[in-house]
Simulated scan of single mutants.
Amino acid sequence: MSGPGNDKTKRLSEADRLAWLRLIRSENIGPVTFAELLSHCGTAQKALERLPDLSRRGGGKTYRLCSREAAEEELAAHQRIGARLVALGEEDFPPHLRHIDGPPPLLSVLGGDVIARDRMLGIVGARNASLSGRKLAGRFAKELGAEGFAIASGLARGIDAAAHEAAVPTGTVAVFAGGIDILYPPEHDRLLGALLQAGGAAISEMPFGWKPRGRDFPRRNRLISGLSLGVVVIEAAKASGSLHTARYALEQNREIFAVPGSPLDPRSEGANGLIRQGATLVTSAADILEGLSGPLEPRLSFTETHRQPPSPTGPIEPPEPDDKLRTRVLNALGPTPVDLDELIRFADGDARSVHILLLELELAGRLERHRGNKISALM
Rank of each mutant, 00 (worst) to 15 (best):
residue 200 G to K: 03
residue 42 G to T: 10
residue 239 A to S: 15
residue 220 R to E: 11
residue 190 R to E: 15
residue 271 A to R: 00
residue 184 Y to M: 09
residue 51 L to Q: 03
residue 364 A to S: 12
residue 353 S to K: 13
residue 204 S to Y: 04
residue 345 R to W: 10
residue 228 S to R: 03
residue 376 S to Y: 04
residue 104 P to S: 11
residue 259 V to A: 06
residue 358 L to R: 01
residue 143 E to A: 12
residue 178 G to T: 07
residue 171 G to E: 09
residue 156 A to Y: 07
residue 94 P to R: 01
residue 50 R to M: 15
residue 179 G to H: 06
residue 178 G to V: 09
residue 155 L to H: 03
residue 260 P to L: 08
residue 126 A to V: 01
residue 255 E to C: 14
residue 324 K to D: 15
residue 289 L to F: 12
residue 178 G to F: 09
residue 1 M to R: 14
residue 275 I to W: 04
residue 236 A to K: 07
residue 223 L to P: 02
residue 379 M to F: 11
residue 268 S to N: 15
residue 249 A to Q: 03
residue 347 A to K: 06
residue 293 S to V: 08
residue 165 E to M: 07
residue 228 S to P: 07
residue 267 R to T: 12
residue 332 A to K: 08
residue 11 R to D: 14
residue 286 A to C: 01
residue 329 V to W: 05
residue 124 V to H: 00
residue 278 G to S: 11
residue 328 R to Y: 05
residue 117 R to Y: 00
residue 34 F to M: 09
residue 160 D to N: 02
residue 180 I to F: 03
residue 25 R to V: 08
residue 275 I to M: 09
residue 325 L to Q: 05
residue 377 A to C: 13
residue 147 E to P: 01
residue 132 S to D: 13
residue 370 H to K: 05
residue 183 L to T: 06
residue 199 G to K: 10
residue 216 D to W: 05
residue 321 P to D: 05
residue 268 S to K: 09
residue 298 P to E: 08
residue 62 T to I: 14
residue 176 F to E: 00
residue 25 R to M: 08
residue 94 P to C: 04
residue 290 E to N: 12
residue 364 A to E: 03
